[in-house]
Lab assay of single mutants.
Amino acid sequence: TTYKLILNGKTLKGETTTEAVDAETAERVFKEYAKKNGVDGEWTYDDATKTFTSTE
């Protein structure tokens, strides 16, 4: 399943996707990605669109 991440950081904005077996796995991948890029925001998830959003 393809999951999408929308980053709305103070210094980094953008989108990326990952293939994962479930939302929990995708969330771990995306949170590590955000951390590596210095984004520490509030997380939301929309199951209908398989989209995570992190907003600082």
Rank of each mutant, 00 (worst) to 15 (best):
T1N: 12
T1M: 11
T1F: 13
T1R: 09
T1S: 11
T1D: 12
T2Q: 10
T2C: 14
T2M: 12
Y3T: 02
Y3R: 00
Y3K: 01
Y3G: 02
Y3S: 02
K4Q: 04
K4N: 05
K4M: 07
K4H: 13
K4L: 07
K4T: 13
K4Y: 14
L5P: 02
L5R: 00
L5E: 02
L5A: 03
L5N: 01
L5K: 00
L5W: 04
L5D: 02
L5Y: 03
I6E: 04
I6N: 03
I6Y: 06
I6G: 01
I6W: 04
I6C: 07
I6K: 05
I6A: 03
L7E: 01
L7G: 01
L7K: 00
L7N: 01
L7T: 04
L7M: 10
N8Y: 11
N8E: 08
N8G: 04
N8K: 11
G9W: 15
G9H: 14
G9Y: 12
G9Q: 04
G9K: 03
G9P: 03
G9F: 15
K10P: 12
K10I: 15
K10H: 14
K10G: 09
K10F: 14
K10N: 12
T11Q: 11
T11D: 12
T11S: 11
T11Y: 15
T11M: 10
T11I: 11
T11A: 11
T11P: 04
T11L: 12
L12Q: 09
L12V: 14
L12H: 14
L12K: 09
L12N: 08
L12E: 07
L12A: 09
K13N: 09
K13T: 10
K13C: 14
K13G: 05
K13D: 05
G14N: 11
G14W: 15
G14K: 14
G14F: 15
G14H: 14
G14L: 15
E15V: 13
E15L: 08
E15Y: 13
E15W: 14
E15T: 13
E15K: 06
E15I: 13
E15D: 06
E15H: 10
T16G: 04
T16A: 11
T16R: 10
T16N: 04
T16Y: 15
T16F: 15
T16L: 15
T17N: 07
T17Q: 09
T17R: 07
T17W: 14
T17G: 03
T17E: 09
T18Y: 14
T18K: 04
T18N: 02
T18V: 14
T18L: 14
T18C: 15
T18F: 14
E19G: 04
E19N: 12
E19H: 13
E19S: 10
E19M: 14
A20I: 02
A20G: 03
A20V: 04
A20W: 02
A20T: 05
A20S: 07
A20F: 05
V21I: 13
V21H: 12
V21A: 14
V21Y: 12
V21D: 13
V21N: 13
V21E: 12
D22G: 03
D22R: 03
D22M: 03
D22A: 03
D22S: 08
D22W: 03
A23P: 12
A23V: 14
A23H: 10
A23G: 04
A23F: 14
E24N: 09
E24Y: 09
E24P: 09
E24C: 13
E24W: 09
E24Q: 12
T25F: 07
T25R: 06
T25L: 06
T25A: 13
T25V: 07
A26H: 00
A26P: 00
A26W: 01
A26T: 01
A26K: 00
A26D: 01
A26G: 01
A26Y: 00
A26I: 01
A26F: 00
A26N: 00
A26R: 00
E27P: 00
E27T: 03
E27Q: 11
E27G: 07
E27D: 05
E27W: 15
E27A: 10
R28G: 08
R28Y: 07
R28Q: 10
R28F: 08
R28K: 13
R28E: 08
R28L: 10
R28I: 10
R28M: 11
R28D: 05
V29H: 13
V29E: 09
V29W: 14
V29I: 14
V29M: 10
V29A: 08
V29F: 15
F30E: 00
F30S: 00
F30A: 02
F30W: 02
F30D: 00
F30H: 01
F30Q: 01
K31C: 06
K31L: 08
K31T: 04
K31M: 09
K31P: 00
K31G: 02
K31N: 04
E32L: 09
E32N: 06
E32M: 08
E32C: 08
E32T: 06
E32F: 05
E32I: 08
Y33F: 11
Y33E: 03
Y33S: 01
Y33A: 02
Y33W: 13
Y33R: 01
A34C: 14
A34P: 01
A34M: 07
A34S: 06
A34G: 02
A34L: 10
K35H: 10
K35E: 11
K35N: 09
K35P: 01
K35G: 05
K35V: 09
K35S: 10
K35I: 11
K35F: 12
K36T: 10
K36D: 12
K36E: 12
K36Q: 13
K36H: 09
K36C: 11
N37T: 08
N37A: 14
N37V: 15
N37L: 14
N37G: 05
N37Y: 15
G38T: 03
G38M: 06
G38F: 06
G38E: 05
V39Y: 11
V39L: 10
V39S: 04
V39I: 13
V39R: 03
V39N: 04
V39M: 09
D40R: 10
D40I: 13
D40C: 13
D40W: 13
D40T: 12
D40Y: 14
D40S: 10
G41T: 05
G41F: 06
G41Y: 05
G41K: 02
G41V: 05
G41M: 05
G41W: 15
G41D: 04
E42S: 11
E42H: 13
E42T: 14
E42V: 15
E42D: 13
E42P: 04
E42Q: 12
E42Y: 13
W43Y: 03
T44N: 08
T44K: 09
T44H: 11
T44V: 10
T44D: 09
T44F: 10
T44R: 08
Y45W: 02
Y45G: 00
Y45N: 01
Y45T: 00
Y45F: 07
Y45L: 01
Y45M: 01
Y45V: 01
D46A: 03
D46G: 00
D46P: 00
D46M: 03
D46I: 04
D46H: 06
D47K: 08
A48R: 11
A48D: 12
A48H: 10
T49P: 00
T49F: 04
T49E: 06
K50Q: 09
K50V: 03
K50W: 04
K50F: 08
K50M: 07
T51W: 00
T51P: 00
T51R: 02
T51L: 04
T51N: 01
T51C: 05
T51A: 03
T51D: 00
F52M: 01
F52S: 00
F52P: 00
F52A: 00
F52Q: 00
T53P: 00
T53E: 05
T53Y: 13
T53M: 11
S54N: 11
S54F: 15
S54E: 04
S54Y: 13
S54Q: 08
S54I: 15
S54H: 09
T55L: 07
T55N: 08
T55C: 06
T55Y: 09
T55E: 07
T55W: 09
E56N: 05
E56Y: 09
E56L: 06
E56P: 06
E56H: 06
E56K: 04
E56D: 07
